[in-house]
């Protein structure tokens, strides 16, 4: 709806209002002009630290679909928004990684539950963003299943990827994966819901917190997904979702010294080069998911969790008891 159209509607609304006064029926208010009712449009805001602020920059853009229909006014986030999000994400690390793996699992499962309950809204948004009904339904179902998949992995990946290592000294030596910390993610441009869920879920399943830049051209599901997160017992700051242009924000996503890892899901080789260079300042872990088809089996694996884990190896001195024959 253009601004002109809105103005027109408003004008007509006013005129009709004068002619027909409100009539009270038994059921309550009955408005003769109800067919001309102004739709209440949703304000798509960003998600930082469990809050839904507007972008600090005050800027916005309006993505359109293939038919040229304007999707919404969407926040054009700035580097300041990103910086605020990093502060929140950093603050959430100890709390989130300190929760029991089982509890993280419960919360991821809860996210799937909430997404299931709002299926219709996501399907509607996906169709608005040029999807067909069948494809949209499939994408939402897959996204829900993917959350369940990673909910299951929360309390299992650690023992699977841990190891007791053979060493030549009298030490008990073992390695365990631990979350790397704050992860910045440039989400896939296509698969605006499934891609987003597929990159966020393994990161938080492993105990990290993240700042995600949703698809630039198809941002609706990203923002609505934030509402799902907000009602899923997920602590504020664990997932922060921004909307805006990757061309503007990617360098900040990689440059920030308080970010421990970056995930990039597009193919642009220039950007990849830049990411490799900039990540060197604090030796960020970088991961490129540019060849993955999120709609297939290859889009889910415990190895995605391991992409944002660090291996901690502990040397624990043990007494060498002669004749006991023990040792690892």
């Amino acid at each position: 709806m253009t601004i002109c159209e809105i103005c027109e509607l408003k004008n007509n609304y006013g005129k009709n209002d004068k002619k027909s006064s409100l009539k009270v029926s038994e059921n309550g208010l009955e408005n003769k002009t109800s067919s001309k009712r102004l739709e209440v449009l949703k304000t798509y805001k960003i998600y930082i630290g469990g809050q839904f602020p507007r972008t600090e920059s005050g800027r916005y853009y309006f993505p359109t679909n293939a038919a040229g229909k304007k999707l919404a006014n969407v926040c054009l986030s700035s580097r300041k928004d990103f910086r605020d999000a990093v502060v929140k994400a950093r603050g959430a690390v100890s709390g989130w990684s300190g929760r029991s793996a089982f509890n993280r699992s419960q919360i991821l499962y809860r996210m799937a539950e909430m997404l299931e309950g709002r299926k219709a809204q996501f399907i509607e948004e996906l169709i608005l963003q040029d999807g067909t009904k069948a494809k949209a339904e499939k994408e939402v179902n897959l996204a829900i299943d993917r959350l369940i998949y990673y909910a299951g992995w929360c309390d299992k990946f650690q023992q699977l990827f841990s190891a007791v290592n053979p060493v030549a000294t009298s030490h008990f030596n073992f390695s365990v994966p631990e979350p790397t910390g704050v992860v910045s993610i440039i989400a896939p441009q296509g698969d605006s819901l499934l891609g987003l869920v597929s990159v966020i879920a393994p990161v938080i399943a492993g105990g990290n917190t993240c700042i995600v830049l949703a698809s630039e051209t198809k941002p609706l599901c990203g923002v609505t997904f934030a509402e799902v997160l907000n009602s899923s017992d997920l602590p504020g700051g664990v997932v922060n979702i921004l909307t805006g242009k990757p061309s503007e924000l990617t360098s900040w996503f990689v440059d920030h010294m308080d970010v421990n890892a970056t995930i990039y899901c597009e193919k642009d080789s220039e950007t990849k080069k830049m990411i490799r260079e900039k990540s060197a300042t604090n030796l960020k872990r970088i991961t490129f998911y540019d060849k993955i088809n999120w709609t297939t089996e290859e889009g889910q694996s415990p190895y995605f969790i391991m992409d944002t884990q660090e291996i901690k190896t502990t040397w624990h001195p043990v007494e060498n008891i002669a004749g006991a024959g023990g040792g690892y």
């Binding site: 910086r83 990093v86 950093r90 900040w252 440059d255 920030h256 010294m257 308080d258 300042t281 604090n282």
Partner: peptide, 9 residues
Amino acid sequence: TGQYQSANY
């Protein structure tokens, strides 16, 4: 430096 900093350093 133009880079946002981390308390770690």
